[in-house]
Design a protein around this nucleic acid. Structure first.
Lengths: 347, 347
DNA sequence: GTGAAAGCGCTAACAT
DNA sequence: ATGTTAGCGCTTTCAC
């Protein structure tokens, strides 16, 4: 039982509560001898601080900064919102408030700006979706310097400093996508719809997924031809004409996939042209994608529960800040959910 | 801010902390006038008790009874264990301990026994998987009488007393199963493997799932023939001979499904006889099933995250007992997960 | 019926 | 470097 109190530790160490409290919080002003003795007693007694008593006594409040790309409702990054809110609500009684700091995912300066804002507020911890690799490394170096713990979601950057990471196994998700797409035979030609802009991005976040997809095809369906069509999300007419053009040339194509969250951009075309019996697979549970799934214009959606990613990451961070717990596992690859019209309802 | 304390309430009500505490806990010994006044002030101030201070001061501990069928590791009911443990760990700092009370799911008397055991220990709340419908109703009536809140998992019983329910939409899961099974064409004959004993059970827990499955077939594949083979889980030789017999008669069958968690019982046969290229779909993430999935002897598993069901149900119950919160939603149908060899790894 | 007072386990400011 | 002490917000005797 956690019945051992700080007083027990003090008595058996031959010191007072105050001194024990000091070593508990790594505060200075304790002789090496006392510290040692106290630590030993703590170990022997299996003393565990009563967090609630602690919280009660020190009602200082802390903040955790959440550094995510800005996004409008219905867009990918908004999917994280509900998880952040939930985790925020859970953290509130612990005297921790979440502070969202947004940035434009296409502008490095914006990210830099957000970083310094975070540094200024001197939070107790930071949650980051690191879209800019190099810049993030610089930032986390500063965090480490200040002893501020940080966690990654969505993407991670290899360094030995992050507390925990939650994300999707991208390569495998491509593999999975290919398998789901091609289970409907015959599958001799596949159309992959991609985003024009991604070709020029510093790092295409879906590149690894694409690699997994192509590897599957090469291994399992070497005869199958993969076509690419590039579209601009902001140009609906362009999308339509590109697709029209494509299908005029390749009327036999019955399999379509995207590697980003934009599968909903092409469903309008499919519906308008009464294209049925296709196999259409995409990613991410955007509202528009779920709608398409319900109408069966999209057959399968692969998702990663972004909300749970955020919630788990924040929970781990809070546990670490408040309870000094180390997360059970450092790299957490989320389960990939397979959604169809028949199981989307309770997602 | 939750900065309003019991002292503020006391002062504005013209009474002492003690009296406020009494109305807060519905304890007797308060004049109607005081009570009324205090309640009014509480409302105006938006006072919310500080649970941690409360927990600190009253270190009485409570228990929650978890009433589930006994099971050996690897069996269906064991899937709930990890969720129960997790929720138990979370409840511990709140001075709440979980007490498991098992019963034999095939013996009514055993369930009755378990019920009275629970009643004796007078827990602060109860978690039930109600396999025996009528008997459960009797039991929950008693709980209601005593004012003990209870939650259902897996199955629910219609009454107006349960706090919350977590389970799988059984009918829909059958529908989903049929869809996943038949996406691989041609699908003209299906083998459904069932458990002998279930035919004679008071209530077959998978009956509704079967109905969903058959409805799908009738609606979407009316030409398709559904064969049934009944097996006894405890008789491996019998299983083998039944299957051998079946496939001798129906060599063209390439689609197999089960509606319970026992798909792993037939994979041995399939492997031994080198039967490949079949479409095999089953339910529940038993270790043996996951193994078969990894080997691709089973193609798809539909699961319901029993651990999360348990964890959520217990969390809601604890929140209600400790924080007096009402669950956000009363009936919670869990998402049905679709597992293949390609996404099973991180499940 | 109600108030006063002594804690719960811990923190932090103030002494020494 | 270390001890003392006054709370944090609430519960729970024990008086009156």
């Amino acid at each position: 039982m956690g019945k051992v109190t700080i007083i027990d530790v003090a008595r058996l160490s031959g010191v007072s509560k105050g001194t024990v409290d000091r070593v508990l919080h790594n505060r200075e002003g304790v002789s090496a001898k006392s510290r040692e003795k106290i630590l030993k007693v703590i170990g022997e007694l299996g003393y565990e601080p009563n967090v609630y008593a602690s919280l009660l006594a020190s009602r200082k409040s802390r903040s955790i900064a959440v550094l995510l790309p800005d996004s409008s409702p219905g867009e990918f990054w908004s999917l994280y919102a509900s998880g952040i809110e939930k985790a925020g609500a859970a953290a509130e009684p612990l005297n921790i408030s979440l502070e969202r700091v947004g940035y434009n995912q296409y502008e490095l300066d914006s990210f830099r700006n957000a970083c310094s804002k975070v540094l200024e507020m001197a939070p107790a911890g930071v949650v980051i979706a690191p879209l800019f690799k190099a810049e993030t490394s610089l930032f986390t170096a500063k965090l480490r310097e200040k002893g501020i713990p940080y966690v990654f979601i969505d993407t991670k950057i290899e360094d030995d400093g992050y507390l925990v990471y939650y994300g999707m196994p991208m390569y495998k998700s491509g593999y999975l996508c290919a398998d789901i797409l091609s289970v409907v035979r015959p599958c001799e030609e596949i159309l992959v719809v991609r985003i024009e802009r991604d070709k020029f991005r510093q790092s295409d976040p879906t590149a690894s997924r694409r690699a997994g997809f192509l590897d599957y095809i090469e291994e399992r369906l070497p005869e199958c031809v993969v076509h690419n069509v590039f579209i601009d999300p902001k140009d609906p007419k362009g999308i339509e004409s590109r697709l029209r053009e494509f299908f005029a040339e390749h009327p036999a194509v019955r399999h379509i996939a995207t590697f980003n969250s934009r599968i909903h951009l092409i469903t309008g075309f499919l519906e308008k042209n009464g294209m049925q019996g296709l196999r259409v697979v995409g990613f991410d549970n955007l509202p528009a994608n779920l709608d398409a799934l319900r109408k069966d214009t999209v057959n399968v959606l692969i998702t990663q529960h972004p909300d749970e990613q955020a919630a788990s990451a924040i929970r781990d961070l809070v546990d670490h800040v408040v309870f000094k717990k180390t997360p059970p596992r450092r790299d957490n690859f989320m389960h990939m959910d397979i959604l169809t019209r028949y199981n989307v309802e309770y997602y």
